Amino acid sequence: MVAVALLVLMAAVVLVARWLVTLEPVQGFLAQYPGESELPHGAPVGIPAWLGWQHFFNVFFMVLIIRSGWQVRTQRRPPASWTPRWGANPKKISITLWLHQSLDILWLVNGAIFVVLLAATGQWMRVVPTSWDVIPNALSAALQYVSLDWPTENGWVNYNSLQVLAYFVTIFIAAPLAAVSGFRMSAMWPAKAKRLSSAYPIEVARAMHFPVMLYFVGFIVVHVTLVLATGALRNLNHMYGGQDAVNWFGFWIFFASLLVIVGGWFAARPLVLAPIASLFGKVGR
């Protein structure tokens, strides 16, 4: 019943959007703001190989982080425990939480490298708004998407403004929020820092962390859907093949990356994790 209601609502939204774009004022708005802002002078063209690798590692870690985070939230009886070797009073945690926090650290390292390379290569200009007209252009792009008359895709040169805002929020707002809330909830938070803990209660971190995870899930679903629906071979070549072409090269690299991610998904179980976790602490029941 809920699915039917959602389909009816989506159909109604599309019909309203298609009616709006027939109105003369709206057509004038779309002509003035076609959906993308002009890039700053000297902005790089194309997607370098390092960005493709960063994208893969980010997806790999994020998928496993979401999986392990959901398990931490729902597991009543963890399959095993893990106790660190360091610290005066080492705290025992579940092996699932150990995996989640370990993946978080790897994801943060990868993210830090990503941000440094964005700044060093000028790629930041493609994902950071540099003009206020990004807002009306984003509204224009959103209206075009909803009306099913999708904006022209040319991600090799410039993302549309809605994409720019989505990437900016994901990289520079959602990711830091996930990091600071996750750190507050982790065993790495200094237990004796009473003033700091009082200023930043763990309840605030918990209230922030789960919605941020839901944001990432929603972003991934929409992002993958649009990549596949707006010229899959060309889009996959941009990110995985490092070329602006329509062939199967990027697709097969993407397919291989999916196999690695699926392999990681099935490997993230106590039988495989225990020997790795034992290198950094004590694994028990």
Score class of each variant (00 low, 15 high):
Met1Val: 00
Val4Glu: 15
Leu9Gln: 01
Ala11Glu: 06
Ala11Cys: 04
Val14Lys: 02
Leu15His: 01
Ala17Trp: 00
Trp19Met: 08
Trp19His: 04
Trp19Ser: 14
Val21Cys: 00
Thr22Val: 02
Thr22Arg: 03
Leu23Thr: 00
Ser37Asp: 11
Ala43Lys: 01
Pro44Gly: 10
Ala49Gly: 11
Ala49Asp: 15
Trp50Gln: 06
Gly52Pro: 07
Phe61Arg: 01
Val63Glu: 03
Leu64Met: 15
Ser68Lys: 04
Ser68Asn: 07
Trp70Cys: 03
Trp70Gly: 01
Gln71Thr: 03
Val72Lys: 11
Arg73Leu: 13
Gln75Thr: 10
Arg76Leu: 07
Trp82Thr: 08
Thr83Gln: 12
Gly87Thr: 06
Pro90Ser: 14
Ile93Leu: 12
Thr96Arg: 05
Leu99Trp: 06
His100Phe: 15
His100Asp: 13
Ile105Arg: 08
Gly111Val: 12
Ala112Glu: 04
Ile113Met: 10
Phe114Gln: 13
Val115Ser: 03
Val115Ala: 09
Leu117Trp: 08
Leu118His: 13
Gly122Val: 01
Gly122Glu: 09
Met125Ala: 13
Met125Tyr: 08
Arg126Tyr: 03
Val127Cys: 05
Val128Ile: 14
Ser131Phe: 09
Val134Cys: 01
Leu139Cys: 07
Ala141Cys: 02
Val146Ala: 12
Val146Met: 05
Leu148Ile: 08
Asp149Pro: 00
Glu153Ala: 07
Asn154Met: 11
Val157Ala: 12
Leu162Thr: 06
Phe172Glu: 05
Ala174Phe: 05
Ala179His: 04
Ser181Thr: 08
Ser181Asn: 07
Ser181Gln: 06
Arg184Tyr: 04
Leu196Cys: 08
Ser198Ala: 15
Ile202Phe: 03
Met208Glu: 13
Tyr215Leu: 07
Tyr215Lys: 07
Phe219Val: 00
Phe219Thr: 00
Val221Cys: 06
Arg234Glu: 07
Leu236Lys: 05
Leu236Asp: 05
Leu236Ile: 07
His238Phe: 15
His238Pro: 07
Met239Thr: 04
Gln243Ala: 12
Phe249Trp: 02
Ile253Leu: 09
Phe254Ile: 12
Phe255Lys: 04
Phe255Pro: 06
Leu258Val: 05
Ile261Ala: 15
Gly263Ala: 04
Phe266Glu: 00
Ala267Phe: 14
Ala267Leu: 15
Ala268Arg: 02
Ile276Pro: 05
Lys282Tyr: 08
Lys282Glu: 11
Val283Ser: 06
Gly284Glu: 14
Arg285Pro: 06
